[in-house]
Simulated assay, not measured.
Amino acid sequence: MKKAISAQNTKMYLENPNAAPVASGKLTSASASTPCVVVFDDVSKVANGAPVYITGSGWTSIDNQEWVIQNLDKDAKAASLAQSDTSAETATLGKDAAWTINAFADVCAQSYQINQTPATSIDTTTLCDEEKTSLVGFRDPGTLTFDFFIDPTDPDYLALLEAYDDGEERMFEIIYRNGAVRTLPVIVQSINETGGVDQAVHGAATLKITGQPILTQPSQAAACPYVLTVAVAPLSGPSPLAVTVTLTETGGHASNFAIDYGDETTDTLPAGTVTKEYTYATAGSYTVTVTPNFKGIPGSVISSAQVTAS
């Protein structure tokens, strides 16, 4: 670990959910996988390492939570959600699936320090032992402290005070000069102010880290995610119902696809399949599921669509 980078030009931002969001939109697709890969309707203001809030997907594993964006492919408008797991989801992605990226306040730190607290050591030594024995206890994520200059009229400083007053968890971003991003969930614990003759008004803040930090590598080093989108048309109609299943791949190509039409009929589609015709002979509600056979992607990665024949 001899490689070093300068701390100069490191940017630090504290999430400000009380301000207007910087970006929002719809999710057009999502994969049932670990991690979940989502497709945005617009990625012009989406970036690796940014926390995105998901609502309306109908998937409890990701709804009403913030997830850190990784492996962003702007051409495909696709990205993975760090530490997410939607592999158990079987429902079709909700038509109201939406995303929001909140505004951030620039803390413009003079210096900073991340203080990780060592895990406790639990002594398990008994008279039977020939030497000391122990177990590792819980680890405290620690604190983040930074120094800054205060201007009481600065909106970003006021946003920091709001975070201290409400005590709500927020995301904190450290963007290094080489493009790497460290994203941490924090609560502002304290803000101190000092001043003196021939000195600038100076501040210091202590933020409690409330969860595991996520480190996102620069976009040029990130691998493009693979995502499969399944569309069925029409989604409903009288039986017998003839439908067209359309497969769209981004980030790679599967060697074949296992398709389950939901009526006890299955098939294997060859690589490069774009559309497949199928007819539902009897009335009912069916879930079309497609599992790509793609190198490095587990078989649990599926995309699905709901069809109703009346």
Rank of each mutant, 00 (worst) to 15 (best):
G137N: 07
G137H: 09
F138A: 12
T143L: 09
F146K: 02
F148H: 12
D151N: 15
P152H: 12
T153I: 09
P155T: 11
D156A: 11
D156H: 10
L160N: 11
L161Q: 15
E162N: 14
Y164F: 12
D166C: 01
D166N: 08
E169Q: 14
R170W: 05
M171N: 14
I175C: 07
Y176K: 15
N178Y: 04
N178D: 15
G179Q: 08
V181E: 09
T183I: 00
P185Q: 07
S190F: 00
N192T: 05
T194M: 02
V197A: 12
V197S: 07
K208I: 11
G211L: 07
G211E: 06
P213K: 07
P213G: 07
T216H: 02
S219A: 15
S219I: 15
Q220T: 14
A221W: 11
A222R: 02
P225S: 11
Y226C: 04
Y226G: 02
V227D: 06
T229F: 08
V232E: 03
V232Q: 05
P234C: 05
L235C: 03
S236H: 05
L241E: 00
L241Y: 00
T246Y: 13
E249T: 07
N256I: 04
D260N: 15
Y261I: 00
Y261L: 04
E264A: 14
T265I: 06
T266N: 06
T268C: 03
T268S: 06
P270D: 09
P270I: 09
A271P: 10
G272M: 10
V274H: 00
Y278L: 03
T279S: 06
A281S: 00
T282W: 00
